[in-house]
Design a protein around this nucleic acid. Structure first.
Lengths: 144, 144
DNA sequence: TCCTGCTGGTTGCATAGTACAACCTTAGTT
DNA sequence: AACTAAGGTTGTACTATGCAACCAGCAGGA
């Protein structure tokens, strides 16, 4: 067992531990907006509106899952649907004013939690950690 | 928005993206053993047996959740219960021979996937990434 | 024009994972 | 003996998810 293998083992173990906790932690932080809802809503804001199909493709979710998530967000008044005049099959989804507010609030809370956890890191370490995560996720997407 | 804030933002985003994918990815890799089951079974092996309560405490799960997970693992023949002779309330849980085999196989598959994703990293980066994850998770546990 | 096939979305069904509360059994204390 | 605490199980409910069946609108070709 080389030192390299040790590192891989630790990375596996720690990422797994993180994944196991993530949903529950997010739910505790802002019960109003689950991890998934938060992500979808954030994407809508980022993209200035998109279709349910785009969300499904981007997050590797089934379209039925997205459909239900969006219904829930709509029921909460966080999302509105605008039928595309050029293609009546399509609904372009947008955050509502309220949705944007809730998103901003949840985002601030999330960001604060991360900032706290990373408070005693120096800038160089933070930047390197960020670049490692980007690199890792890029590889994961590439390799499935 | 400082460069530091950017780094925090990226870390948040990438860890979130990872968490969103983790369960589904794990499920695709070895349908026999979900992420949670895998983790519980691995803990049993690590600890050379422990109680359901210990698992619940360690993974911040409700004891009912653990109870059901263990029932499922037992039904699959991966776990056996041994009543503690000193305290008949207690069941000490152990992986069975079969459970250990499945665990080893799933573990090898998981490890291989990580090894592939990290194939083109040099040793120093791997070691640093591993240490960052340890540090991050330690802080998360400390801060809740 | 009409049939066929494709695309975007919804709905019915099934499953996993989870929590909470009520409960049972066994230990330990007073 | 009576009470309390600890380890587990079970009933109930809810969220997230996928698959399959379906509907509706669009686009192309015979």
């Amino acid at each position: 067992m080389t030192q390299r293998d040790d590192s891989v083992g630790i990375i596996q173990q720690e990422l797994t531990a993180f994944a196991r906790r993530a949903r529950a932690t997010a739910a505790r932080m802002h019960p109003e907006l689950s991890l998934v809802s938060y992500t979808l809503l954030a994407h809508l804001e980022d993209q200035k509106g998109c279709r349910a199909t785009d969300l499904a493709a981007h997050y590797l979710l089934d379209k039925s899952t997205v459909s239900r998530q969006i219904s829930a967000l709509e029921k909460l008044g966080f999302v509105e649907r605008r039928v595309d005049p050029d293609d009546h099959r399509v609904q372009v989804l947008h955050p509502t004013e309220l949705g944007a507010q809730v998103l901003a609030s949840a985002g601030a809370q999330r960001r604060q939690a991360f900032t706290d956890r990373l408070a005693d890191w120096d800038d160089a370490d933070l930047e390197r950690f960020a670049s490692y995560l980007l690199r890792y996720n890029e590889a994961q997407q590439r390799l499935g």
